[in-house]
Structure formats: structure tokens, C-alpha cells
Design a binder for these strands. Structure first.
Length: 544
RNA sequence: GCCCUGGUAGCUCAAUUGGAUAGAGCACCUGCCUUCUAAGCAGGGGGUUACAGGUUCGAUUCCUGUCCAGGGUACCA
């Protein structure tokens, strides 16, 4: 529809011999008094034409065709908006469109099958996922789903490193518990991980091998069994949230196939590095970041995290993605400019990379802040959270807000299955619609193949129809902005219009023609609600 | 110090990315169930969009400065 109006306006402007620099902006109005669609073209032209915007708007409207199959009327409003009101027929048409392929209504081909990779979570396997990881997990997965709906060819990737200092401490932590279980009085180290899972892993080793490794703290078994246990745990948690990855990329692979050396050599060749104090530095300042940074340490013979990160991103380019999306927590915002600078130095097109940064989650329990630390085991795990409030609420809450805002997650509030919960509002709408159709079935009302949609003409029905047609636009916009909260906002609006319709318009009545039309409208609404919920990863309900 | 994010109703947040009278939910009042689920609907109160300037037809949105909050600023990741 937006396209149609744009074309009309283009023709009108052509008639008036007005040249435009950019495309004409046509958008939905905020208020129904202003019509269904509006344009501000006239407001952008006064300087150029040296005429007041109202006059320009009048000229444009005069140049538009007198009658049109989909526009009922056109109004000009101060200071120069041109507002379009659609005909009832146009509004009602959305139902035919939906029923062509209800489950896929809303999908668009903006992505055109292009390969896109979304990297998210990427937590090293040192402990169970926390609530903070949860936000990233759900955000990343929703972004991937949105891109799916925009016809991108999406791959979800998890990047991890099981070789660093943290993993070594994990092994030692398990060893510590191992000895404790065997009756040794071991002093606790501040750095050790203290979660319950460490004890479980240690117990398992005692069960299987007894005291075989009691003098061998560096034995691989401690690190490896901990890692295996933790990774399984992480995958289980993600599964509970309906999150699945296509690839798990281990940093180790970058060393094994020589990628790290390769990149370091290339950077040296193009003089993007220099030696100082025995270390190898990257000339960040030459490539637009504030400081030069160390790539290769002198005190220990190993790389800093920057080098593998750059190498890892090189593989993303080599793997041929058209679009690369990195989802990070706010604690990483300082590191990615270095990576981008490195890639730029290597002549990669960094515009393919889109970085989504989300702010932290603060967890409160009855108004009091819960401190979160993986090491101290004072956190609430994501798993516990899912257990308390369920998958649907967790997923919805994590994306209903802009990623840039801090998220206050009040456990007490989320636990209460009460009115304050927007998830129930949506699910209630889906359950109500199912209920109507159950009743229709009970009364042996056969659904017609060809209901007369022109009977849908109350205010509530128009609002619902108009909002249904918006879904496609929302999905498409989200594909660009990568902001899932636009979907949740839309769904709240749609559900609200449905509840109003439900209250004002009795669906099943003596008027069988009207009943057919309204049944079709209700069913179409349910399809869109469910489609939108699918993107968020929440289930619609038959009954509540 | 410097660099990111935020600051919107009592609370938690929106605002079609520069549009028209800034909207929801919760909380607080008032109505609506003999009828498809009242976990709903209708109505009411509540705002100098942190503050001060600027840009323009038009600013919560963009620019500058100030204040407040969170995060970053390692040869940790």
C-alpha cells in the first residue's frame, strides 16, 4: 500500500515538474483521525519552490487522479500533511491476502537468500549461563528469527575458548573439591569457582576413579570433565529456551590451522604492527581507534584476545557471509572497535558487520538487588529463572525492551502470574479466539470458503483489519533495525484491538453471513498473533 | 581524565528512527459478566520528555555544554 501511494505521488509530482532528491516518505499515521497513511512531501519543498507548504500540498492533491480504487479520500492538514483514507474494500482485502498462506503471512524477501551469520551467547564453558547471558541468548535468537522472516539464509554461531586461564582455574576448582570429598583439608582459593556443579563433577570423578589423581592437580580429567559437564548444561538451558546453534566455533581451531600466525604475518607485512618492549603492537591509531594495543605478549609467549578475535572474524569473511551480526554485552563495547580496525587494516569491508550491544540485566528480588558473579556462585542461573517463570515469560521479557536500556528483572514480579504480565495478555487473545471457534464447531457452524468481508464495517473491525495489514511492514522494518521490541509492541497493539473487537462485536450471532465474516476475521487475527509470537519464540494457546 | 549507553507519568517501559494533541501496563478512583474465557472492555486523575542553549516549517529524537546513573578504559576475555 505504501508503494501504491508513493507511485501516485511520484506521478503527481512529475505532472507538476517537481524533482525530488530522495524517495517520498509515506508512513502510517499515529492517529486514525489523520487517516491511514500520510506523507510529508509538501513540507520538504517550500524552500525549493518558494511557496508555503499548504499551497504545495494543494497542488499535489489537485494533480492526483480524481478517483482511485483503494483511496476513499485525501485530506490536507496543517502545516502541510497529506493524509490518505483507505476504502473499506482495501482494508478488507488484507483477509484474502492472509488466507492465501496464513502461516507465512508477514514474511518478506528483503534478504533475498543472502547468507547472514548471527553470533551470540559465546560464553566460555566455566559455569552455567546467568540471567545476563539469557538476555543475549534471547536477543540473538530473535534477531536470527527476524532475519529468517526476511528471507535471509541465517546461521547461528557460538564462539568459545576452552584453553584460557579461566578454564585452568575451572580444572583446579574441580580438583579442590575432589580432594575435599576424599577427606583432605584443602584451603579455599579466592579465584576458584564455587558453584554446586563443581562438586557434582568432582563427585563423579571420585566415583569413577577413586583417589587415582590425588597428586595430579593438572591432570586433564579435571578440566575436561568440568568443561563437558558445563557445556552440556549450557546446551540444555538453551534448548529449554528453544535456542539451537548451527555452529560451535572453538578458538583452538584458529591456532591449529595456522590462522593466527597467518593473520599476524599479514598485519606485519602491511606494516600495521610494530615491536615495543618485546611485545607486538597493533597500530590502532592508524586505523581510527584511540590507542595502539598489544597483539602478542612479551611476558608470556601468547596472543592477547584481540588477535584471535580478528582472526575469527576473518574466517567469517572467508566463509562468505553477506552480513555478519555480533551480539555483545555492554562489557564488550570497548573491544570490538579494535577488531574492526584490524579487519579494516586487512582490507575487509567492515560495513558487512553489524554490532548489537545490549545493556546489563539487574536482577531484583523483592526490591533488593541480587549480586551476580559466576565465580562466587551468588548468581541466579538462567536455568533457575526459566524454572520459576517459564520459557515464554523469560523470552518475552528479555526482548520487550530496547537492547540499549538497562533491564530490571524483578523476580517477584515475573513470578506472579498476574495482570502485570504482558505475555498473558497476548496468550489470552489467542485462547479467546480458539474458544470462539470451539463454540462454532459445537454449534455445527460450517466455515464458508468465501465469506462476505464487506460486512465488517464497525470501527473495531476496521482498526483490526488496518493493524493486521501492518504486520508485514513491522517485520520488514525489524529486519533492518534488528530491534525485536518492535514486534512485541506491535503484538500488544494487535491484541488490544482484538480484545476491543471481542467486547464490542459478538462473533457468533443469528446473522449467519456476519458470523462467517467475523469468524474469518478472528481466525486471521490469531494467525498473525501466532506468527508474531513465533518470531519472539512464545507459544500461542488454545486454552487458558 | 577519556570513550560507550541511558535519563520520558508515583513505578517499569513505548513512541513508526525528525512529524500532528508524547502513549501502554502496574498502582489509585468509577462503571460493565444470565450472552463466544472479566487474565477482558469503557472512563478518570497523573508530564516543563534531567537541565541550558542551538539547528528548522516541526525536536523525546539531531548538535554543543552541564548534572545524574550504569558500563568500559590491561601484555584478563
Amino acid at each position: 500500500m505504501i508503494k501504491n501511494i508513493q507511485i501516485l505521488l511520484e506521478n503527481a509530482l512529475g505532472k507538476l515538474n517537481i524533482q525530488l532528491d530522495n524517495t517520498i516518505l509515506v508512513e502510517r499515521t499515529r492517529k486514525i483521525e489523520f487517516g491511514h497513511f500520510t506523507t510529508n512531501v509538501a513540507l520538504t519543498l517550500p524552500k525549493k519552490l518558494r511557496r508555503p507548504p499548504i499551497k504545495i500540498a494543494e497542488d499535489i492533491v489537485a494533480a492526483l487522479p480524481d478517483s482511485n480504487e483503494f483511496i476513499e479520500k485525501i485530506e490536507i492538514k496543517n502545516p502541510g500533511f497529506i493524509n490518505f483514507f483507505l476504502t473499506s474494500k482495501t482494508l478488507q482485502n488484507v483477509l484474502d491476502e492472509i488466507y492465501e498462506d496464513p502461516e507465512n503471512f508477514g514474511k518478506c524477501n528483503a534478504g533475498d537468500g543472502k547468507k547472514v551469520q548471527v553470533e551470540f551467547v559465546s560464553a566460555n564453558p566455566t559455569g552455567p549461563l546467568t540471567v545476563g547471558h539469557g538476555r543475549q541468548a534471547v536477543l540473538g535468537d530473535c534477531i536470527a528469527r527476524i532475519l529468517d522472516w526476511n528471507s535471509y539464509n541465517v546461521e547461528r554461531e557460538y564462539y568459545y575458548n576452552d584453553a584460557g586461564r579461566q578454564m585452568r582455574i575451572l580444572g583446579l576448582s574441580t580438583f579442590h573439591r575432589y580432594k575435599e570429598i576424599l577427606g583432605y583439608d584443602e584451603p579455599m582459593n579466592e579465584d576458584y569457582y564455587q558453584g554446586q556443579y563443581i562438586k557434582e563433577v568432582a563427585q563423579k570423578i571420585v566415583d569413577d576413579y577413586g583417589d587415582k589423581f590425588v597428586d595430579d592437580p593438572e591432570n586433564e580429567i579435571f578440566k575436561n570433565s568440568s568443561e563437558k559437564f558445563v557445556f552440556n548444561d549450557i546446551k540444555e538451558t538453551l534448548k529449554r529456551l528453544d535456542i539451537h546453534f548451527d555452529n560451535y566455533y572453538n578458538e583452538k581451531a584458529l591456532y591449529e590451522d595456522g590462522k593466527i600466525d597467518d593473520i599476524l604475518n599479514k598485519l606485519e607485512e602491511i606494516d600495521a604492527t610494530y615491536k615495543k618492549d618485546g611485545a607486538i603492537w597493533f597500530r590502532g591509531t592508524k586505523y581510527g581507534v584511540a590507542d595502539d594495543r598489544v597483539l602478542w605478549k612479551s611476558v608470556v609467549n601468547e596472543a592477547t584476545y584481540r588477535l584471535p578475535d580478528i582472526a575469527y572474524h576473518c574466517t567469517k569473511f572467508e566463509r562468505g557471509y553477506d552480513k555478519i551480526i555480533d551480539v555483545f554485552g555492554a562489557d564488550h563495547h570497548g573491544t570490538y572497535p579494535d577488531v574492526l580496525a584490524g579487519l579494516k587494516a586487512l582490507d575487509y569491508n567492515t560495513e558487512k558487520i553489524q554490532v548489537v550491544i545490549h545493556q546489563f540485566v539487574t536482577l531484583t528480588r523483592g526490591g533488593e538487588k541480587v549480586k551476580m558473579s559466576t565465580r562466587k556462585a551468588t548468581y541466579v542461573t538462567l536455568d533457575e529463572l526459566i524454572g520459576e517463570v517459564g520459557k515464554d515469560v523469560v523470552r518475552y521479557f528479555f526482548v520487550m525492551r530496547n537492547a540499549n536500556s538497562h533491564l530490571d528483572f524483578d523476580l517477584e514480579l515475573a513470578k506472579t502470574e498476574g495482570d502485570e504480565n504482558p505475555v498473558f495478555y497476548l496468550q489470552y487473545a489467542t485462547a479467546r479466539i480458539s474458544s470462539i471457534h470451539r463454540k462454532a464447531k459445537r454449534l455445527n457452524i460450517k466455515t464458508s470458503d468465501n465469506p462476505d468481508y464487506s460486512l465488517l464495517k464497525t470501527k473495531e473491525e476496521y482498526n483490526l483489519l488496518y493493524t493486521l495489514s501492518e504486520f508485514k511492514e513491522v517485520v520488514q522494518t525489524c529486519g533492518k533495525t534488528l530491534e525485536p521490541q518492535q514486534i512485541t509492541n506491535y503484538l500488544q497493539k494487535l491484541a488490544s484491538f482484538f480484545h476491543k473487537f471481542y467486547t464490542e462485536c459478538v462473533v457468533i450471532s443469528d446473522d449467519s453471513e456476519l458470523t462467517q465474516a467475523r469468524l474469518a476475521l478472528a481466525k486471521a487475527t490469531r494467525f498473525i498473533l501466532v506468527n508474531g509470537l513465533k518470531i519472539v519464540g512464545v507459544d500461542g494457546l488454545e486454552k487458558m
